[in-house]
Each structure stands twice: as structure tokens, then as C-alpha cells.
Amino acid sequence: MSAKKKGMQSVVFLNPPCLASWASIVGPKEGEGPWGNSFDVKLSDYLLGENTWEKAESKLLQDTVTMAMSKQGLGVDEAEILLAGDLLNQIASANFAARSLNIPFLGLFGACSTMAESLILGAMLLDGGFYQRVIAATSSHHYSAERQFRFAIEQGVQRSPSAQWTATASGAVVLEAGGAGLKITAATVGKIIDMEQSDVNNMGAAMAPAAADTIKMHLADMELASDHYDLIVTGDLGSVGAALLRQLFVRDGLVPAPNYSDCGILLYDEKQDVHAGASGCGCSAAMLCGPLLAKMQRGELNKLLFVGTGALMSPTTSFQGESIPCIAHAVAIENI
């Protein structure tokens, strides 16, 4: 087995890449949430001066990437490659953002797990010695996603209490080889887990088993105690999925219970009428690049396991009544 592979599904980075800078931009509703002031930019409208939501989302991603680089006083062209994705068909937002950013680009789709996926691949590319500076980024936009996956915006529908609200948000991390500060030390790539859940208005329930599987695998592969991490954060199971995951921890015998939270629960206030919480690739990306990494930088958190969870259905397959295949990837970020 390779020196960098550990256990069944995990990898450890021998030269852990550092998170050199990061940026987060959120929409108006997200800005009103409990962590509103922890994001770099709170938008005042959903269109960003564009004439379609799709263009707005693309601009959102582009601006976040540019900002993450500019925090180090760098231009975007000083990054060697962009790893990015989003929720739209053919990852349109990422493709169009990459067109403007004009740097080498690998497009990713992992639904809401895309941020974790891009961080893992970015870290691998750096530890593998292929690049020196990589950008990992994702975005989501409430209105562009809603019209693709659910109903027309103005159509009167009663949302299910288990439904999640796609966040308008984006996050970008600049990863660098070597360097000091926060580092990605290990990662676990998940398997698709499908527990035959098919309700697109209850994605948390569909994704929780995938999160449970990946977290269990990670702890086993890395031979860690279940309370090793200061915080295990999933993105985004919402309140229903998080409650299920806590039950699955018990079922899987993760004792003591890990200190656990979920980006989908954290992003909004309960009063914001979002039912089970947030979803969308931008949610976990912005939560990571906003409050979570800031907390790590201040030393309030030192060992974080960031678990991106994705519900990988397409509107076509849900329409045909297929169940939702789900995935979760775990990234260990440590202050060393």
C-alpha cells in the first residue's frame, strides 16, 4: 500500500498543504443569520448586477475566488489551477466563472459535498507535488437551484417541514504546498450510500447514512477516538439529517459521542422560516471559509473534521422515482 494511503478509504498527507487564505460571500438572507458578520461580504441583492440568477451565481463564485487570492495580495493568475463546482446542470456557474478567471480549471460535481471534494483533490495535487498553489471553491444560489430542482419561484407551494433552503453563498480556499498555519492533514473519500430514500424534500434523511459511514470509516482508518476532533461538522444535513446522524452515531457505537454540528443548521436562525435548515454547496463552503476557519485561526478550534455531504440526484432521476444516491467526504483540518 502507498505510504500516503491509510486504512480502507483514507489518505494522510506527508507534506500537509496549508490553507493560505480564504474568502466567503453570502446572500442577503444568509447575512441576516447568526453568523452574518463572520462572512467577508454580505450581498444586498440576489442578482449582483447581472440579469439572470445563473450569471449572478457565476459572478458570486468568481468574486469569491478573486477575493481569496487578493487577501494575500495576489492576482488570480498566480494560482495554478482552480477546482470548483456548483449545483446547476453541467456545473454551469463554475464553468462560466472559470471562463472569466482564465486559469486552468477542473470542474467538479459532488452536490453539497463539492467543497470537501475540491479540498481533498487540491490537497492531493499539492502533496503529490504537481502544483504549488491551488484554489478550491464552490457556490450555490437559492433561486437558480430552486428553479432547477423544485418549483417555479412564484408558484404557491407549501414547503415540507423537512425541506432545506438552498443557500446563496460561496466559499473559496487557496491551498499552498508547505507554508505555515492551518493544514489539511488527512482525508477520507466516501462511498455512495443509498438507503432508498427518495424524497427530494428530505435530503438530510437521505444523506445522513453516507455521513455516518464516512465518519466511522475515517475514525477507524485513522485509528482515532470518536472525540478526537474538537468539532465534526457536516455540510449540510439540516436539522432532520443531523438528528438522524446523532442516532446513527449511537447505532454505530461511536462512544463518547463526537462533538458534532451541521453547517445547514448553523447558517440560519430558526426564525428565518427555512424549515430544516440550509443546503447547497455554498452553505458548507461559506461556513468553512467564514466562521469556522476564523475560529481555527483564533485557536478556538484546533482539530476540525469537515464532512461535505452530497445528495447526488438529478431532476430527471427524481422525476423517474429513483432513490437518492448520497456521498460524504471528510477533510481533517488542523492547527499545527
Binding site: 408558484q155 404557491g156 407551494v157 407549501q158 415540507s160 424524497d199 427530494v200 424534500n201
Partner: peptide, 11 residues
């Protein structure tokens, strides 16, 4: 009908 058949019956 809608509440008791969630999520099968849509508007």
C-alpha cells in the same frame, strides 16, 4: 390529502 400523502402528492 397533501399532508397525509407527503411527499407523493404535489400541488
Amino acid at each position: 390529502i397533501m399532508d397525509f400523502t407527503k411527499p407523493k402528492i404535489t400541488p
